[in-house]
Amino acid sequence: MNKYREWVIEKSLVAAAMVSLIIIAFIIITIFRTGLPLIAEEGVFHFLFGMEWRPRREIFGIFPMMAGTLLVTILSMLISVPLGILAATFLAEVAPQAIRSILRPVIELLAGIPSVVYGFVGLMALVPFIRIHLGPPGFSMLAGAIVLAIMALPIIITIAEDAINAVPKTYKEASLALGATHWQTIRNVILPAARSGILAGVVLGSGRAIGETMAAIMVLGNIPAIPDSVLDPIRTLTANVALEMAYAAAGPHRQALFATGIVLFGAISILVITANRLRRGQQL
């Protein structure tokens, strides 16, 4: 009797643990089922590299949005990667315990603030600032990159710090014993040893920037065109879906938005798998 009960309980726990896999499967099935027929009809090449997005005339090319997503992500990483690695190094190697116990909750809060609040602050503070001091329209790749950089920071810092902490103490001691300064040790021994873990943080941080929706919509201006400068508005893949799902009727337009979702999901999945590999790579 007891044995039977134990068996039932164990199996239900397995089932609960499987739920996240089931959700992933359902996500894949639902978005592919709706989006894939349109990609097949338009042709992969036309859909991915078409320069025009005119839903009313049933022209669906998402290249400007892919370029927009890519450009704003790269720009945001230029800001958040150096800052994030510095902060992670500071936390792991330099910060006194008291400072660390202030910074940890600060980083958690940065991760916890809702993206719509980041977007709101960007819209009310950053966009007007750029419009006045750097030139109109203010809604721009630059505004988006700054907001996304802040949002990606917590991920980069947390994962990079873990990677730095995972470097064996003996490496550090050996370097110090050879007469290297603390900074020389950090630069030449610790950071290189933690390289792949730090890289995993950067990859997941860019994943956050690519997938961000609300903040992107609120500061980027959402014009589906290739930008000439960082002060031009752009539209990301996420914004394309979020803005048009509100009114897209069932049919090719809605299918095209799900197809945009497929591209986005594919990109994110590649990043998650890459980060996973990288983190496993750093087993010292």
């Binding site: 359902f26 997938g211 929706t213 994110i268």
Partner: peptide, 15 residues
Amino acid sequence: ADWLAGVPSIIFGLF
């Protein structure tokens, strides 16, 4: 679970 954590919220919205 890691994969799910990386999926953007707009994709959850579509699903």
